[in-house]
Design a protein around this nucleic acid. Structure first.
Length: 585
RNA sequence: GCCGAUGUAACUCAGUUGGUAGAGUAGCUCUUUCGUAAAGAGCAAGUCGUGAGUUCAAAUCUCACCAUCGGCUCCA
C-alpha cells in the first residue's frame, strides 16, 4: 500500500519534470521554481516575467510534453557543487536561493536528467518515464507566492494530474463529476436552501425557509444536548465598543479581519468577530464562587469577519456566521475533564450525523513566533500536554501540528476532508490561559480568597452553521434524513377531487408536528412524483379513489428512493414518519 | 488582497466575421383529472454584471469597477 503511494507520488513528481521541460522549450525565458507531487497530482511553479499564461495554453504545453516524452528513458542522477549548480540557473533567484540553502550543510546538490532536460531535485522518480508518464492532464493555472509567503513574488503555478493508466485518469474525472453534483452551492439552489445576493454583500448568507428549517433543527438538537451536559444559554449583541476588544486583546491581532469600526457619538463600535469577549463580560457581571465552576455559557453567536474576498466560497467560507459556541470557565484541575467531555460531545454529534471520516489535530504553538503567541512557555507546555493526554486516553485518531494554535492557547481541531478532497477544519476546541489576566477573571475559593487561575475553553463542536450545513448537504447529497428534511411528506392527489381528502390528512399530520404539503397543481401524478423526488422529499403519499374512502382515509406511501410502503392509514403514516424522525436516521 | 477563468430571462444554456437577443425548464392563463419519475396550447418575462470609451452601429472590441468559480495567503 505504502509502496503504491510512493510509486504514484514518484510518477506525479516525474510528470512535473516533464511539464517543466515542455514549458522551458516553449518559454525559454521562464524561470523554474519547484514542482512537487501533491495528494492528487502535481504542480510546477514558474516565473513567466511579463508573459501571461492561461488554460488556453494547455493544449500546446501538453502536446509538447508528449513530444518530449519518448526521449526520456531514465532519470539520471548527477551531483554538482554549489558553483556548478548555480551556473545552471543564471538569473534564476528561486533556484539559487534553494542551492544556497541546500549547500549549507552538504557539499553537493543533486540534479536529475532525462532527455535533454535537467533540474535541481532531491529525487523520487519513476523508472521508465517514456513508458509510464503517458496518462496526465493539465488542470488549472493559479497564482502562488514563492515559498508560500505573501510578501514574496507571486509565481504562476500550473496544476496537473497523472495516473498509471487511462482508466484511472477517467475514473478520476468521473469522481470529480460526481462531486460536482453534490456541491452544496448547486444543491443549495436546487433545494431552495439559501442564496447570496450582491446587494446584501458577499459572504453573507440569506437563508430561505427550507434552509432555515435545517438550521433550526440542528439548533434544537444542540440546545437539548448541551442542556443535558450542564450548559446554560446566554444571548448577547453582535456589536461592542472598541474598549471591549482592546481589553480582550483581539484588536491588535484581529483588526484586519474585523469590519471597520462604526464611529458613534459615544465611541467606536465594532461588529464582533468572536463571541468570547461578550461571554467573559457575562462572567464578570457578578462575583463567582468556586461552587459555580465549571461554568458553561452557550450561545448561537453571530459574528462577522472581513475575510479576504478571494477566499469566500459558498457556505464554506463566509463573512457573517453563526457559531455553535460556548465558553467553559474552570479551574486548572478541571481542564482535563471538561476538555474530555467536549471531545466526547463532539463525537456524539458527529455520530448522529453519520460523519465518520474525520480526525483530530492537536494544534500547538511555536515558541519562536513571539509575534503570534502570548509568551507564557510554562502554560503552553502544561496545557499542550493535558490536551495530548485527553486525546490519548480517548484513543482517537489525532495528529500534532506546530504553529497552528490560537494566540491565547493550544487547541484541538477536528479535520475533515471535503468532497473535492480539500482539508477543512470543522470544529475547534481551544484552551485559553490569556483571558483570565486580560479580563481579571476570578472566583472566590473555599478559603474565601480570590483566585485568579481561571481557564477558559472555547468550543464550537458543530462549527459555524454555514460551514456545517455545507458539509451536511454534500455528505447527504441533499437527501437529508427525515428529521432534517425541510418537507417530510408530500401528499399527491391524483385528480382534483382528491385534494379535499389530501388536505384532511395534511391537517392530521401537521397537528403531530410533521412537515407536510399537498401538491394541488393540476399536473399529472407522474409529474408530481417526479418533482417531489427531485426535491428529495423522503415520503410521498399518493391519493386517488382507492385512498379517499371517507370512513377510512389512507395514502399510498412511496419513499424518495422509489420504495413502495403500501396503502397506510393516517395513524400508520404518523407512526412511520415519526419513527424515522426520532431515529434521526 | 494576489494569479487565472467566468458573468445573456427566476434556473440551465444558444447567440457565427460588430447590424440593439433566442431555446428548454420554472411562472401565469386555459384545456386535461390522469395510479407511481415530465399531459397539451397560449401568455408574459432580459438596461446581455455595472459604468465609461471606440464606432454610423456594441451582448460581441477597449478600459475600469462589481460579483462568482479554481488556486495562493489566511482561516471556523
Amino acid at each position: 500500500m505504502n509502496q503504491d503511494k510512493n510509486n504514484l507520488s514518484n510518477l506525479r513528481h516525474s510528470t512535473s519534470h516533464l511539464l517543466a521541460a515542455a514549458v522551458m522549450e516553449l518559454w525559454p525565458n521562464a524561470k523554474r521554481a519547484i514542482g512537487p507531487a501533491t495528494e492528487n497530482g502535481f504542480y510546477f511553479d514558474f516565473d513567466f516575467g511579463n508573459e501571461k499564461i492561461s488554460e488556453e495554453d494547455f493544449p500546446k504545453i501538453e502536446a509538447k510534453m508528449l513530444e518530449i516524452l519518448p526521449s526520456w528513458e531514465t532519470f539520471e542522477r548527477q551531483e554538482l557543487s554549489a558553483e556548478e549548480a548555480k551556473n545552471q540557473y543564471i538569473n534564476n533567484p528561486y533556484k539559487n536561493e534553494l542551492i544556497k540553502e541546500f549547500t549549507q550543510n552538504e557539499e553537493k546538490v543533486s540534479f536529475y536528467k532525462s532527455g535533454e532536460f535537467w533540474d535541481l531535485c532531491k529525487g523520487g522518480h519513476c523508472e521508465q518515464p517514456s513508458k509510464e508518464l503517458k496518462h496526465f492532464k493539465l488542470i488549472s493555472v493559479a497564482g502562488a507566492y514563492w515559498r508560500g509567503n505573501e510578501k514574496n513574488p507571486m509565481l504562476t503555478r500550473i496544476y496537473g494530474i497523472s495516473f498509471k493508466s487511462k482508466e484511472e485518469l477517467d475514473t478520476h474525472f468521473t469522481m470529480l463529476e460526481e462531486a460536482k453534483k453534490r456541491d452544496h452551492r448547486k444543491l443549495g439552489q436546487e433545494l431552495n436552501l439559501f442564496f447570496i445576493d450582491e446587494r446584501v454583500g458577499k459572504g453573507l448568507i440569506m437563508w430561505l425557509p427550507n434552509g432555515t428549517i435545517i438550521k433550526d433543527e440542528i439548533e434544537e438538537l444542540v440546545k437539548k444536548k448541551e442542556k443535558e451536559a450542564g450548559y446554560v444559554r446566554v444571548s448577547t449583541p453582535h456589536i461592542a465598543k472598541e474598549e471591549l476588544f482592546t481589553l480582550s486583546g483581539h484588536l491588535p491581532y484581529y483588526k484586519d479581519s474585523m469590519y471597520p469600526p462604526m464611529i458613534m457619538d459615544d465611541g467606536a463600535y465594532y461588529l464582533r468577530a468572536m463571541n468570547c469577549p461578550h461571554h467573559h463580560t457575562i462572567y464578570l457581571h457578578n462575583q463567582k464562587s468556586y461552587k459555580e465552576l465549571p461554568l458553561r455559557l452557550a450561545e448561537y453567536g453571530t459574528c462577522y469577519r472581513n475575510e479576504l474576498s478571494g477566499t469566500l466560497a459558498g457556505l464554506l467560507r463566509v463573512r457573517g456566521m453563526t457559531m455553535n459556541d460556548a465558553h467553559i470557565y474552570c479551574r486548572k484541575d478541571q481542564i482535563k475533564n471538561e476538555f474530555k467531555n467536549v471531545i466526547k460531545l463532539t463525537m456524539e454529534y458527529f455520530k448522529i450525523f453519520g460523519l465518520e471520516d474525520y480526525w483530530f489535530r492537536l494544534s500547538k504553538w511555536n515558541q519562536k513566533n513571539t509575534e503570534k503567541y502570548i509568551d507564557e512557555p510554562e502554560n503552553w507546555e502544561y496545557t499542550e500536554q493535558i490536551l495530548r493526554e485527553v486525546l490519548e486516553e480517548l484513543n482517537v485518531k489525532f495528529v500534532e501540528a506546530e504553529n497552528e494554535a490560537a494566540f491565547y492557547g493550544p487547541k484541538v481541531d477536528v479535520q475533515f476532508k471535503s468532497i473535492v478532497g480539500r482539508e477543512e477544519t470543522m470544529s475547534t476546541i481551544q484552551l485559553d490561559f490569556a483571558a483570565k489576566k486580560r479580563f481579571g477573571l476570578s472566583y472566590i475559593d473555599q478559603d474565601g480568597k480570590e483566585n485568579n487561575d481561571v481557564f477558559v475553553i472555547h468550543r464550537a463542536p458543530l462549527s459555524v452553521h454555514e460551514r456545517f450545513i455545507a458539509f451536511l448537504i454534500e455528505h447527504y447529497a441533499g437527501k437529508f434524513p427525515v428529521w432534517l428534511s425541510p418537507l417530510q411528506i408530500m401528499l399527491i392527489p391524483i385528480a382534483d377531487r382528491h385534494i379535499e381528502s389530501a388536505n384532511k390528512i395534511k391537517v392530521a399530520l401537521a397537528l403531530e408536528g410533521i412537515r407536510v404539503e399537498v401538491d394541488n397543481r393540476s399536473e399529472s401524478m407522474q409529474s408530481k412524483i417526479r418533482d417531489a423526488t427531485l426535491q428529495k422529499v423522503p415520503f410521498l403519499g399518493i391519493m386517488g379513489d382507492r385512498e379517499s374512502n371517507i370512513d377510512n382515509l389512507t395514502a399510498s406511501i412511496r419513499t424518495r428512493g422509489g420504495q413502495d410502503l403500501g396503502q397506510l392509514s393516517i395513524d400508520l403514516i404518523i407512526q412511520k414518519v415519526k419513527e424515522d424522525i426520532d431515529k434521526k436516521a
